[in-house]
Design a protein around this nucleic acid. Structure first.
Lengths: 316, 316
DNA sequence: GACGCTTACGTTCGTCGTAACTATT
DNA sequence: AATAGTTACGACGAACGTAAGCGTC
């Protein structure tokens, strides 16, 4: 058994059981991957993958356990590399964040500004995507930190911590009737065509719930992946925008009207997502604490090593 | 980086920084180990061991982190082997238990009898030692299960679960005055020379506390590592024996007097010790549940993956 | 017939063990 | 002087890549 074999099965599983793709991703030859996998299966005495003739078509029950444990082992190997980097080049490295547009565009910039001046040598990577993509990036180690709105409970290998809370506002063209209403209500909003986030965003479900709770059926004419798009269409007069309060900038958006809608919808929580058992660099802890002061090293470590809520861990 | 290198540093640390010893234990050559360690240090960019000239004299701070993570990785590698064995030869394998004399001699036999008939192909290993040795055996993977009386809190890599409780009794020569006392008291016991367990046993501290709490200073004339020795000296008339209730067998020990002393000392708890993150074989879960029915697979798994109470985990 | 996994084979690189050397106690 | 670690070197073996073969879809 060797680490290469573990990387191989891990990547094959990741690449939807396509050995050729995995070989490509690992910059090696396809027969090499194929052979190493067979050797590992031979050594362990179990088949990891289900084969129909020559194609891989599934993962066997023992294969599931093997893949899960292999992933854990590889996380530790990764941690070793990080320890080395931390002690030999503590101010260099990579800070890779996956986030949705709103976080990347509004919540992160001030934190990142401070971080970059403190750690100029750290290479910053900011990956953007919808919540599902963000979770996948974290899982695949394309990113080490994620900002998400769900608790990530469905991923045994991930943990999440509440980071900060935010509320919503509506934006309108200037002089819109909604700006003159005494107090903003869901009923009033529902009278106008609405532009808001795509359903892929979990924050969106809070919006739907609020209207549903009042028996209202809003006329959502357009959904977008980011608030800039929403604002663009609002300014074109297509409807009223419903977005995160932090996405409204009084200066840049001075040609749009805005009203706070915090009282109409549940407060949403942005959560920090991490890979369970990952070892974090010193500057990563710093970054997180800058993002959310209550997330101290101790709090984070406790979460990283906490047991999964109800995972089928290693079960046979 | 490869697994061999991790095994090497792990074993060197285990063998008190003696590379030659480690090479021996791993059935390989000393220069090979030496070279691989240097290569790993080179690759990680940090020194793992402190060297005075050519001798290893300590572990560097990064070395501490590296060793801890390497140990975790090796546990997972071990788990892979176990998964293989579980699925390919589910009724074969090793059940290795470390326990103190009392547990091995009195608590385990009935459980083991049932286990052996259920799993005749499993090779049973029973390692005996004092509590410290038992913990070390578990840590070194010489044993996979341990029966101890302490919570093992000082070992980050181990967990323990309450297994069953037990109380004490005194044994005396026949017709001893203590057998005729209306009700047994500490004061009465303290009047006679006492024979009990060695101080290495944590159960012993409960005894000391009880006497101390009444301002008594018992005359302990002999301490032993096992109850058979205690009983032998009691039958020779050297004194009164104080031992675990389960160690008295009405038939075999019919020539000794016995009185229950449960009310005089704190109840002691025997705990099951496991290596954190270890993957257990199906028959190991069976064995544990036979030992203590409330320790279901679920309960055990929760403990295995629980966070350490207050460990300096991975801290830099 | 195109795609994808396996088998076969030759080259290369890495690992291991022996032996000689050097430093510490 | 003995013990312990490093350097040097040669032999073996494992892993990789190319090319050909064979099964699926």
């Amino acid at each position: 058994m060797n680490l290469q074999q573990l990387r191989y099965i891990h990547e094959v599983a990741r690449q939807k059981l396509n050995i050729s793709e995995a070989a490509n991703a690992l910059f090696t030859s396809q027969p090499g991957v194929s052979k190493q996998i067979r050797q590992l299966e031979e050594e362990l005495g179990v088949e990891i993958f289900v084969r129909h003739g020559k194609r891989l078509t599934g993962i066997t029950p023992p294969g599931r356990a093997v893949l899960e444990i292999a992933a854990r082992a590889l996380v530790q190997i990764d941690n070793l590399r990080k320890v080395g980097a931390e002690y030999s080049r503590s101010d260099e490295g990579r800070l890779s964040i996956a986030a949705t547009h709103t976080q990347a565009r509004h919540a992160l910039p001030p934190v990142i500004r401070g971080f970059l001046s403190r750690y100029p040598k750290v290479k910053l990577e900011l990956h953007q995507g919808n919540p599902r993509q963000v979770a996948e990036m974290l899982l695949n180690a394309d990113a080490d930190l994620a900002l998400v709105s769900d608790p990530l409970d469905e991923y045994d290998a991930l943990v999440s911590l509440p980071c900060y809370q935010w509320n919503r506002c509506i934006v309108t063209p200037p002089d819109h009737p909604l700006l003159r209403e005494e107090s903003l209500t869901l009923e009033a909003i529902a009278r106008y065509p609405l532009i808001t986030y795509d359903e892929a965003f979990s924050g969106r479900s809070a919006v739907d719930r609020a209207f549903l709770g009042r028996g209202l059926k809003p006329n959502i004419i357009l959904t977008a992946l980011d608030s800039d798009v929403i604002k663009t269409y609002v300014s074109m007069g297509l409807g009223v925008g419903l977005l995160a309060r932090m996405a409204y900038d009084p200066v840049a958006d001075r040609r749009l009207g805005m009203r706070d809608a915090a009282h109409l919808f549940e407060t949403s929580t942005t959560r920090l997502g991490l890979r369970r058992h990952a070892w974090l660099r010193g500057y990563e802890y710093d970054f997180i604490q800058a993002l959310s002061p209550h997330l101290s090293r101790k709090v984070i470590e406790r979460a990283l090593f906490s047991p999964a809520e109800d995972g089928e861990h290693y079960s046979v």
